[in-house]
């Protein structure tokens, strides 16, 4: 039986100028916190785990499916970037419908999440503030209830109430799913494992965590 998330010997590099890894992690659930200095490679690692970047070495599997080659693997995975990436011409509802349909659950309804985040589903993303766009990206990531959620700069741009709501959700998800996140400082959530990420060095599990 394969684990929910299997990262084995993952190395990300851009020519000779930048490299991070290897990273190895096999888990079925929990909140994984990547820590490290700016430019250390946290975002690059997250993007490689999410299938956006091709790793120089190693592999990432979700429920046994390689995310680089398998559509099924990527279907169970969601990535929330640190900056806005959703097209401005879409409304929040259209954006999450798009994400849910690509993941094979077109009937997924994001309205409860919008209500919890105090976000109007008919809001055009081009007219949304940075915080509202961040909320929209989060809701799109939740579309179709993916098994692995990758959150870059988890609490960036969020107001206090929304950050609190997200903390509650992450605690809830980490019981049955895998949440890999980056956050500068101590995140207001229960973290199961912490990995130290520094450019040019292996990704190591910090002591104090199993």
């Amino acid at each position: 039986m394969s684990s929910l998330l299997e990262i084995r010997g993952l190395v990300v590099s851009f020519g000779r100028s930048f490299s991070v890894g290897p990273m190895t992690l096999v888990t079925d659930h929990g909140a994984i916190h990547l820590v490290g200095p700016n430019g250390g490679g946290k975002t690059s690692l997250l993007r490689a785990i999410g299938g956006e970047l091709r790793p120089a070495e190693g592999s990432v599997r979700v429920s046994g499916h390689d995310v680089q080659t398998s559509v099924e693997g990527r279907r169970q995975l969601a990535f929330v970037p640190s900056g806005p990436e959703l097209p401005e011409f879409l409304t929040v509802r259209e954006a999450y419908q798009f994400a849910a349909s690509l993941r094979g659950s077109p009937k997924w309804d994001g309205t409860p999440y919008c209500q919890a985040m105090d976000l109007e589903p008919s809001l055009l993303l081009g007219h949304a503030s940075a915080g509202q766009r961040r909320k929209a990206e989060l809701i799109c990531a939740l579309a179709a209830d993916p098994a692995v959620i990758l959150l870059d700069e988890t609490f960036a741009h969020l107001d206090e109430q929304s950050a609190h709501q997200l903390s509650e959700w992450v605690d809830e998800w980490s019981v049955t799913r895998v949440v890999v996140l980056t956050h500068h400082g101590i995140p207001p959530i229960h973290v199961n494992e912490v990995f130290s990420v520094t450019a040019g060095k292996p990704v190591v599990r910090q002591s104090g965590f199993m």
């Binding site: 879409l90 409304t91 259209e94 419908q97 349909s101 109007e120 008919s122 809001l123 055009l124 007219h127």
Partner: peptide, 8 residues
Amino acid sequence: DQVGDGNL
């Protein structure tokens, strides 16, 4: 802000 809803 509220454009016609396009169902995706």
